[in-house]
Nucleic acid binder design. Structure first.
Lengths: 229, 229
DNA sequence: CAGAAAAAAGCGAACATTCGCTCGTTTTTT
DNA sequence: AAAAAACGAGCGAATGTTCGCTTTTTTCTG
C-alpha cells in the first residue's frame, strides 16, 4: 500500500476544490445566488454552525433562531441560502454524495490483485471520511430528516461499498490468495470499522492516532481475517 | 463456549422478569400508579409505540399527538405515565441500564482463562442486546435527548465494556495465550461488532442469521485477531 | 474615474401553525 | 360511594416561514 492521506488530499482538491463551492454549484440556480465569493463564504458559516448545533442537540432540535444567533445571520438572511429547514439536511446529503462519487467512483478501475484492490478501497474510504468527517457524521446521525429518494441513494451507496468489499474477498479466495470462511461477516466488520473512524473521531484524536495509522491497523486486520497466505 | 441464547433467556427472565415490570418498579412511586397490572400493560403499549414512532421519524420529531393516536390513549391519559416528554427517553434509558447491570455485572466473576472470559463477555452482550434490541437501538440513536447525568452513565458503561475487552486481550498476551500487536484497535473492533448486532438487526434477520450464529462468527474473528495459539 | 441607478443580499418584526402540557370532567375500577 | 384512571378541549410558548424595508454590492453612464 502506498497511498497516504497527504497524497489523497491533493487528489481531493484537484477533483472537487472544496465543500462550499460544491454546494454553490449544486444550488446557486435554484436559490438565485449570484455572487459566488459571498455565497460560498456564507454557506461555510451556515453549514459549520449546523454541524456544531446538530452535534450537540440534533438537527430536529436545532431551531432556526439558534442557527441565526450562532451564525450571526438574520432569519431572513438565512432563507436566502435555503428555502426550508429540511432543505439544509437535503443539501448536505446531496453535496456529500456528489463529492464521494467524484472521489471514489473515479478509481473503480479493476486491478489484477483483489487484495490490493481491497486495501485501496478501504484506505480511500478512510481518507475521504477523514477529510469530510463532519459531513459523514451528520449524514449518519440525521438521515431520519430525509425524503425517501435521498435516503435510498444513501442506503444504495452503503450497500455498494459492502458489496465491493465482499466481492474482493470472494475473488481473493477463488484465486487462492486467501482462505476466508465467513466473507459476509468479515465484510460487515470492515464496513463498520470504516464508520468507526468518523463516528468516533474524537476518540482517535485523543489517542493521537491519525488516518494513516488507522488504515495500517485496518489492513493488518484484513490480513488476519481473510487469512492471506 | 457453551452459553446459548436459549439458556441466556432463562437467566434473563429469572433475573428481571420483563421490561415493563422493571419500568413499573422504577417509576410507580414517582407517578402515583397503584394498579400494577394496568400500569405494566399501559407501559408496554406506550413504550412500544415510542419505539415504533422514533424508529421512523426520531424521538424529537415524534409528537405526543402522534403517540396518542398510535397508542389509542388520550393526551391526558398519557401524562399519567410520564410527567414530560423527555422523561420518556429518561425512563427508557434508566430501565435499560437497570436491566443491563442486573444481567451483566452479576457475572463479573474472575475466571482463570482470559480468553474464556472474553468469549463469555461478548456472547452475553450479544444475547442481552438481542433480547432488548429495540431498547439498545433507541438508546444509541436518541442519546441526544438526555440530560448530562444519564448520558455520562451511558458513556461510562460503554467505556467499561471496551476496557473489559481490552483487559482480557492484554491478559491473554501476558499469559502467552495470544499474540495481539494492536489490542486497542481490536477491542474497538469487537465493541463495534457488538453494536452492529442491534443496529442492523433487520439485516441479519433477513439473512436468517440468529444470535448464536453471530456469536460463533464473532468468536472465530477473535481467535484470528488476537492470534490465539 | 465618479457617482447614480439597478440589482443583490441582508434584516427582523409579524403571522399562522404546532407542540407540550394542564385541568375540569367523565368513566372505570375498587 | 370512594378512588383511580382516562379523556380531550384549550392555553401559552415556541417554531418555521414570510415580506416589506434597509444596506451593500455591482453595473451602467456621463
Amino acid at each position: 500500500m502506498n497511498l497516504s492521506y497527504e497524497t489523497f488530499l491533493q487528489e481531493f482538491e484537484a477533483l472537487v476544490e472544496d465543500e462550499w463551492s460544491c454546494l454553490f454549484d449544486l444550488y446557486h440556480e435554484k436559490l438565485n445566488l449570484k455572487n459566488r465569493k459571498i455565497a460560498t463564504k456564507k454557506f461555510q458559516t451556515i453549514i459549520e454552525c449546523v454541524f456544531k448545533l446538530s452535534q450537540t442537540k440534533g438537527f430536529q432540535a436545532m431551531t432556526l433562531r439558534d442557527l441565526s444567533q450562532e451564525s450571526g445571520i438574520s432569519m431572513g438572511g438565512l432563507y436566502k441560502y435555503f428555502s426550508n429547514k429540511n432543505q439544509i439536511a437535503e443539501m448536505i446529503h446531496a453535496a456529500m454524495i456528489q463529492m464521494a462519487e467524484t472521489c471514489l467512483k473515479i478509481r473503480q478501475y479493476r486491478h489484477q490483485d483483489p487484495v490490493f484492490e481491497l486495501n485501496e478501497l478501504l484506505a480511500r474510504h478512510v481518507f475521504l471520511s477523514e477529510r469530510l468527517k463532519k459531513w459523514f457524521y451528520f449524514v449518519f446521525m440525521e438521515c431520519k430528516s430525509l425524503d425517501k429518494d435521498l435516503m435510498e441513494t444513501i442506503i444504495a451507496s452503503e450497500r455498494f461499498m459492502e458489496n465491493a468489499i465482499h466481492q474482493r474477498i470472494v475473488d481473493a479466495n477463488q484465486q487462492g490468495l486467501s482462505q476466508c470462511t465467513n466473507p459476509d461477516f468479515v465484510s460487515a466488520m470492515l464496513k463498520v470499522m470504516l464508520q468507526e473512524w468518523y463516528l468516533k473521531s474524537w476518540k482517535y484524536q485523543q489517542k493521537n492516532i491519525n488516518a494513516d495509522q488507522y488504515v495500517a491497523n485496518l489492513l493488518l486486520s484484513v490480513y488476519q481475517l481473510i487469512q492471506v497466505k
